[in-house]
Design a protein around this nucleic acid. Structure first.
Lengths: 260, 260
DNA sequence: AACTCGCTTCCCATGATGTGGGATTGAGGA
DNA sequence: TCCTCAATCCCACATCATGGGAAGCGAGTT
């Protein structure tokens, strides 16, 4: 299992590509990694991994523990992250999400797409899973992001592995295509134990003017809370919140007309 | 004025170095940049800047506006930023800072050092300046970070330019050294109109076990609020908050003993 | 319309630049 | 003490990034 998270572009880029892979390495694996661990994870010679790490260190994208000389994400990442967080207006979303969570008694999560993953960037729960990466094919958030995928982000065809987490996980590409058609028809996605048992999630898109999903909004709870009878009510709440987020997160130019 | 923000390391790294400079380009200049603007800012051939941007695009560190094909920070930055934000425990700091701001009626900011800048990463004010970069030599936050600089981060000598913002800005290296000695003696830094008139800032360090500043905590208001007579009281409040942050942000191993 | 300017994007010969095997040093562990 | 594993440095090789150039657009101007 190589780190094929990013699309390999043909143009000259190997060194940069690898350096970015080093950074990407820090979600999946622990908060800090040694040079040789990096090399192993990325299947690179130690020498090369070490050089990349030193370069990232010099630019502030990594920092090194003085005692153990292990690497962890550096101040430049924190800085740029805060910047893009605010540029996307995500700090405006937090109150809306808390409100939704409180109103519904469920967990509310907002995710955006990052390559082949859905990434939760803001949450309205008490223990936010913010920063968490979820696969696209086995989560309600992911299915929404796939169903209304922006052009150029790659549709469901760009996800070869599709590992099964439970016996309900959809793994067949054809079944996934059918599921996405259903999601588009009903205008919401349901995840009923496809990534873990005992968790039911409803997700709706935050759409832009072109009809593509910029974000996905999820409401998550146990099946006892989100019963079939109450599903419609949860959807109304979620869609209302999604509508509010369209106004908060999208500039007027990219927003869709109010009466759509 | 080249982008010399990062330390140039001798080892093979040019391509990576430049790619990271591209990312760093997005604080200073607007939220989105075109390929040729990037080239101009970084003094690179358009061809090269374009290739770097495409590589960053493929890895999700940039994203491209579909209409204007300008670049902006991508989802991977948001994702990694959230991750490192939580790894540093900064979400735990927000309530403390709000509390401090409310108690003192001033703005409370928490900053960390990123190369030659102090970066505000969390704030307790109504309009947080989070993500903002401030120079080290002309802010109270910066002076604290310099006075208790961690080894290997470079002391005041590593800041050649020292531009003057007002007639009170300290520009002489010798004067800066003396100022830092005073800061260390008094255990706080004062910025009285050195970066802008009508703003007075007090800053104290959040120290680790080795006696180095991991963060700087600032209290900012007009001179009418932070009078000479009330300075001591503000310092007591700030230091109490800094002490609380030591416990929240530092692991027991890197923390200093309670009775120091 | 025709012209022009600036931008994005692709191509490709050149050699500068990243590569990685291996040597060296230092820090634990048995 | 010896042994192992990791961090760091070195250097000859050829792979890979480089950047000049040209083609293709789109918008604004005459």
């Amino acid at each position: 299992m190589t780190e094929a998270a990013t699309v390999r572009v043909p143009g000259g880029a190997q060194a940069v590509q690898r350096a970015l892979d080093v950074l990407h390495c820090f979600h999946d694996n622990g908060p800090d990694l040694s040079a040789s661990e990096l090399a192993r994870r990325l299947e690179l010679p130690v020498s090369t991994a070490h050089r990349l790490a030193r370069t990232l260190l010099g630019a502030g994208f990594l920092e090194q523990d003085a005692r153990t000389s292990r690497y962890r994400l550096g101040p430049a990442v924190t800085e740029l992250g805060r910047l893009s967080y605010h540029q996307r207006g995500l700090h405006l979303a937090a109150p809306e999400l808390s409100d939704l969570a409180e109103r519904t008694g469920a967990t509310a999560d907002l995710a955006l797409r990052s390559g082949p993953h859905a990434v939760i960037v803001a949450g309205g729960s008490v223990t936010p899973k913010v920063g968490l990466r979820r696969p696209l094919h086995s989560t309600a958030l992911g299915k929404v992001l796939l169903a209304w995928a922006r052009p150029g982000e790659g549709g469901p065809s760009s996800l070869p592995p599709l590992p099964a987490f439970t016996d309900r996980t959809i793994v067949e590409p054809a079944a996934m295509e059918a599921e996405l058609a259903r999601v588009r028809d009903d205008a919401y996605a349901l995840n009923d134990g496809e990534s873990a048992y005992g968790v039911r999630t409803l997700a709706v898109p935050v759409l832009d003017g072109a009809g593509h999903a910029r974000f996905a909004l999820a409401v998550r709870a146990t099946p006892e809370v989100i019963t079939a009878a109450r599903t419609e009510w949860f959807l109304v709440q979620a869609r209302s919140c999604a509508r509010a987020l369209e106004v908060l997160l999208l500039s007027p130019a990219e927003r869709r007309p109010p009466a759509s």
